[in-house]
């Protein structure tokens, strides 16, 4: 009976696994620390986003970035023409809390429905560092530099992906379908 054999195999496979005795203590310590960082971020992000919205275009000599091109404080200063903002999916219950914005032909989902599209995701976690280990934990593209940014690059079924750590605590990921990825990456500005 396969179900029985599976249960036996799973029991045998996990028999030696045990949670660390200090697990609860470590978790509580991390949760306390993260709670303070989150409170601080809640206070600072609107201020930084507003400052970035005003100051960065001045510094770059570009026009103001539309509000829907500011993703969790990160400015998307370049998008290919003809794309419109698509509705957002509910966030994943993920270990990397992330905010994603998608622009596509006709406002659909290019990754499943066809058409062109660009998505920009901003992930924030105190554990993110600009190290190979941190990038490996996030995903597993090939090391590559695009528009002066060192990160990881991947390609699958016509979807081009690049992600990098612009500063500790933040990963920005850009995905492109049928559109040029590099100018979008070049136009990403992370204030602060």
């Amino acid at each position: 009976m396969l179900e029985h054999d599976l249960r036996e195999a799973m029991a045998a496979e996990t028999a030696t696994l045990a949670a660390a005795p200090d697990l609860a203590e470590r978790v509580e310590r991390r949760a306390r620390s993260r709670r303070w960082r989150t409170r601080l971020a809640v206070l600072l992000v609107p201020f930084l986003a507003a400052a970035g919205w005003f100051l960065v275009p001045q510094a770059l000599g570009t026009g103001a970035v539309p509000a829907d091109q500011i993703i969790d404080g990160v400015l998307v200063t370049h998008l290919p023409p003809g794309l419109i903002r698509a509705p957002e999916d509910p966030p994943d219950d993920d270990d990397f809390p992330g905010v994603t914005a998608l622009w596509s032909t006709g406002g659909g989902k290019p990754f499943t429905d066809g058409g062109d599209g660009i998505s920009v995701s901003v992930y924030r976690s105190a554990d993110i560092e600009n190290t190979p280990a941190s990038l490996d934990e996030f995903g597993a593209g090939e090391p590559r530099e695009i528009a002066g940014k060192w990160g990881r690059h991947g390609m699958m079924m016509g979807i081009e992906v690049f992600y990098w750590v612009p500063r500790p605590g933040v990963i920005v990921m850009v995905m492109a379908v049928g559109a040029d990825l590099e100018p979008v990456v070049e136009g990403i500005v992370v204030p602060g």
Partner: peptide, 13 residues
């Protein structure tokens, strides 16, 4: 969380 991680990794081959 496991499914989300796997999905994200799958995107990156």
């Amino acid at each position: 969380t496991v499914i989300s991680r796997a999905r994200r990794r799958a995107i990156l081959r």
